[in-house]
Structures are given as C-alpha cells and as structure tokens.
Amino acid sequence: MSGDDIPGAAFADLRAEVARAFAAPEGKTSGTDRGVTSDLSIDEALLLHSIGWEPIDLIFGASVVSIPVGIWTWGQGALDPASSAHAMAMTSASRRMEDQCASVGGHGAVGVRVAIEIHPRHVDVELTGTAVRPVGRAARRQRPFVSDLSARDFALLQGSGWAPVGLAFGASFVYAPRRTAGTVLRQSTQNVELVNYTQALYAARESAMERMQRSALEMSAHGIVAVRVDEGPMPFARHVIRFSSWGTAVALVAESHVGRQPRVVLALDDQVVQFAPEALHGG
C-alpha cells in the first residue's frame, strides 16, 4: 500500500492543501451542499463518501406516550400497558424520523442515537440522526430506513451486500414474583435457586426478544445486528423488571454476501487509531 514512499513529499502536499483551503475566496459553498447539517464525524463522512453516499440533514424523531396510573403497584405477570406504551413511543418516534427523512430527500438515517426514558407516568423516546442518500440521487420510493449503526458500520455493510431496513425493538415489563414472608425467612439462610424468579425473568426476556424479532420480520429483514439489551429493576418500582432490546434490522440486498477479506495489522497504539489524510488517495 505504501511501498513507494517519498519521504516528505506527502506532507508538502498537505501543507499546500491547507494553504489553499485558507486562501479560498469567501462564500464558495454552492449547489446541493448549501445548508447541509450533519452530526457525522469526519471519518464517518469520508467513509460515507467513499461508498458514494452523502449526508443531507440532521433529523429528529420524538414521542411521549402516557402510561396509566397505578400499574406499578404490586401485581402478577406482565405489565402490558407499559410495554404497549413503550412500543407506541418507539414506533411513532421512528415514523416521525422516517417522515422527516423522506421530506429532505433522504434514503435513510444513520448513526441514530436512541434515548429511551421511562417515567412512572410516561415513556419518552428521542431519536437523533443524519439523513443520507447516494450522491446526487433523488428520494427513493420505499420508506426510508432508520438505523442506529454508525456511518462506518453502514459503509461496511453496504460493501458486503447488506442494507439496513429499520430499527427493530421489543420491550417487556414483569412483576417480580411475590414470596411469602415464610419463604423469604426460610430462603434467607439458604443458597437456593429462586425458581419463580428465574422463570419470570426468562419469560420476560423471551417476550422482549420475540417482540423485537417480530418487528424485524414485519420489515422483511433477514437479521438484526448490534442488538442492545437494557434490563433490570425500574428505579422507581424495584419490584418491576424491565427488558428492552433494540438493534438494526438488516437484509441481504446483493445476490450473496460479499467477503471483505480483512488484512491483519499489528497496532502499537492503545488509544485512537490515527491516520493521515494524504494516504486516503492511495499510495
């Protein structure tokens, strides 16, 4: 890759570029670039460009959904009102994001940050991301995709014949089973599996995952990548356990998977991988 280095030559070139950048006359941004906003890092922007895509605009989705009063008190089984509020908030926030994406001519949103907050009386979902499209191409007819994969991951998937189709998600809330005072007392000195708990948690996790898979299937996806799981007791109601999982649903769009045959490197840095721009145009 970098066998025919001429020491010093590359840097002189970079200096010239820098000098040129700051000598440029004012107000040259024109055409489709005008007013573009994006939250991509420079690496992500370069990678996106390398596969022929470009950022268009920063887009948002949000939804606040009510949870009926009184459901967090003791009960048994699943808290369906909470999981349906959760599902509605996610669906409607991503729908808004898709609408915004379509209205700015995007084919999809990448690097979407998903923020879910569950309050006792309402679920808040906020999505932030950047709408992207193939350079110079008009809006597509299908619904835009929303994906929490970074532009880097998007570029890698794209190069391997896959494409994101949307956010898949599922959540479930269950009451931890109640133990009688006698049982608590008896078990306090024993090392035993709390079978009821195990079963309840299993069931909850299963149903969250199952909901997530169902939402992916509805989008005709072939798989879900980078699944994130958030689980544990609710801070304001410790006897309720929440499972929520989400990830990007992907589908194979090429004939078959394209292998990338990675090179093996030995890195000597513990920190961020640095790379210089002049190498980007090939050695």
Binding site: R263, F275, A276
Partner: peptide, 12 residues
C-alpha cells in the same frame, strides 16, 4: 522526522 506514510483503514 518524517513519519512513514499511513494508510486508510477500517478496523473490524
């Protein structure tokens, strides 16, 4: 000292 020319990579 001129650093050797790095190359652009995507790390997996």
């Amino acid at each position: 000292v001129t650093l050797p020319k790095p190359m652009a990579i995507i790390s997996l």
